[in-house]
Structure formats: C-alpha cells, structure tokens
Design a protein around this nucleic acid. Structure first.
Lengths: 195, 195
DNA sequence: GTCTATAGAATGATAGAC
DNA sequence: GTCTATCATTCTATAGAC
C-alpha cells in the first residue's frame, strides 16, 4: 500500500541529497539534470524545489555539509599532545573519514569550479581550516626539533595530496584492507618528517 | 585586411583544440558548449564540425594527445642507470612537464568520466604505462636494496598523488620558484625511499 | 508535498548557400 | 571552410491543481 502521492518531507529531503551526491560524484554536476535526480528519488522534477531553491544551492549545501562534518569529526578525534602522535592521528583520521564517504570527498574538490564566487570562498575557507591543522602540527614538530621539515606548508600539501589520492584507487575487498593501507601510509608519512 | 570568411584549416584546427582545452579545464567538459568554443575561436558553431566529428571526440583527442606527449617526452628524458638517479629524473621530469601544461593535465584526470568506455580504456592504458615506469624504478631499487619500500605500487601511487597535487596550488610568480619547488619535492621523495 | 504542464532558454548536430 | 538557419531535444525553474 505504498502511497504514491502525499507528504514525505521528512524522508524525501535526505533522499534528494543522497541521490544528488551519488549522481554528481559519478557523472559530474553539470552533466546531471534535476530530472535525473528526481527519477532516482522517485518523484517528479518539480518536487525537488521543495528541498532546494535551485541546483547550485543543492551542490553547495552538499559540499558545505561535508566540510563541516569533516571539521567536527576532526575536532572530536582523540589525539596525543606530541607532534608525532598528532600527525599519526591526523593521518589515520583522514584516511578513515575519507574512505567512508568517497562521493562527498570527490565532489568537494572536483566541483569547486561550479560554485559561484561567494559559495566558493566559503568552502575554501573551511578547507583551509582543515589543512591549517596539519600545517600547525608540522610547524610545531619542526620548531621543537621532533620533525625535520624544510617547508611545513609544502609538506602539508604534499601529504594531503598523497592521502587524498588514496580515494582514487582504494576499494574495499581489494588486495589490501583499509587497515593495511593505513599502516603503509602512516609509515610513509613518518619517513617524510623523520629527523 | 583580415579575411572573415574563407579557408583557414591549417590555423583554425589548432585554435579549436587550444580553446577547447582551456575552456574544458576552466569550466568542465559538460559545462562548455560548442557555441562557446566557437566564440572563443571566432567562428560559428557549425564550423567546428570540420575539425571534430563531435564534442566527445574532441575531448578524447585532447586527452590522447596529452598522454602521448607525456610518454614520448618521458622516453626521451635523460636518466642515469641507478634507481636513485632514475627516481630523481622521474620526479624532475614530472614536475616540469606537468607545470608547463596545467590545463591538459587537469582535463586528463578530471574528465575521464565523460569518455565512453572504449575511449576511457585507451586513456587508462596510457596512464598505466606512465605509472608503471615509476613502479619499475621502485621495484628495481627495492630489489637491489638501494630503496627501502614496503609496497612499490602503493608508494608509486602516493608519489604521483603528491606530485600531481602540485598543480593545484603552484603558480609562477608565487612565493617559490619552480626550481625551489622541484628541490623540495625531490627531497621529500628521497626520504620516502631512503634505506 | 507532489503532480502535470509549460515557459523560455540553451544544447549538439546537420543542411545547404557561398 | 565558413556561414546562416534550423531541427529536435534537453534543460532549469515556475504555476497552479490536488
């Protein structure tokens, strides 16, 4: 006795976001039409506008939610006080968090160019806060002599490039488990800063 | 006395490719219309079809040219025989080559999803050949004990992620010169494999 | 809250004149 | 080889019925 019409706002909203997330990640924001998102959810295109004022805002809110989740989860992540422990915590956090939501990660750096300038600036500010956390760790470690780092900023970029690239090839059920990958990456990061 | 009509095939062809490359890189394949490419070149949309059978083939040929240029340039690159020398040569080659053509690099890994399966397979094969060259270097170095590498394949991915990420922030005229960046990255890569 | 219907604009690609 | 003109389709977003 499935209702085909009526009120579903509590359930349709999340389904719209989920469908948009997956489709944007797979085919790209510009290539996905509102009709296709609606079809995925099982409603007509017009109904989507109960949940977003327009397509661009839908993209923006997906990216903003992702970045806020990322920062909140990182803030809540347990980490020791010493730079090496904090670096390890950052690495393991980044790998686990990103591996759990590949679509959102992918969108959040692939679709930046589809944001208008104000939205872009807002997302970039959140991203910089996250990257800044890693820069701080490297700076502290370099200052206390625990790390040997030529340029904390560049090293942080390189590390994030390394870690984020993981999402392009890692698949659950492949040759390596996530735990194994985590160890491999942590061992590489440690080498990068070893004094 | 600029001619506004007539035969220009020798000059228009490259201009179409150049315009498509820049626009695809800036706004994304799906967001760029044939009309906009034509406007950039200074012709009408219909004229583009003298140079490509369709939009997708235009994208594919840009990506294929780039990958072939990459492989040809790498094959021609001078490198010593020992693994450490070869790794250094790879790193410097990659940084210089990629920094000279950011638009083509960007497209070649951002727009893969807009290729149909046959085209995708062809580009992927070329990419694997290039990545394979780095894997071989790491394997040789590990086999002879010059490198300490846990997993050559993963390490190669990590290195390429690190190096490619460079294009997302490096700008000529910024805080660091390309030569300085090259040194920083080479020093990081060396640490990653140090026995 | 979802539907149908549609306005209004843009798209990829083709035909035929020059 | 390029132009103009156009076809057929698709798109985002809105209006109004239920």
């Amino acid at each position: 006795m499935a209702r085909t019409r009526g009120s579903h706002s509590d359930i349709t909203g999340p389904r719209v976001e989920r469908a948009a997330l997956e489709l944007f990640a797979r085919d790209g924001y510009a290539a996905v039409s509102m009709r296709r998102i609606a079809a995925e959810v099982g409603v007509q295109a017009g109904a989507l506008y109960n949940y977003t004022p327009d397509k661009q805002t839908l993209l923006f809110s997906l990216m903003k939610s992702h970045m806020q989740d990322l920062l909140a989860a990182y803030d809540a992540w347990e980490a020791p006080d010493d730079p090496l422990g904090r670096l390890e915590a950052f690495a393991r956090f980044h790998i686990r968090f990103n591996s759990e939501r590949p679509a959102a990660v992918f969108i959040s750096y692939m679709e930046l160019r589809n944001l208008d300038p104000e939205h872009f600036a807002e997302i970039e500010a959140l991203r910089r806060r996250y990257e800044g956390a890693l820069v701080d760790i490297l700076r502290d470690g370099a200052a206390t002599g625990v790390f040997d780092v030529d340029d904390p900023r560049i090293t942080a970029f390189a590390m994030i490039g390394m870690l984020t690239q993981l999402n392009t090839w890692f698949r659950r059920g492949g040759r390596l488990s996530l735990a194994e990958v985590e160890e491999l990456y942590w061992s590489m990061l440690r080498r990068l800063v070893a004094a």
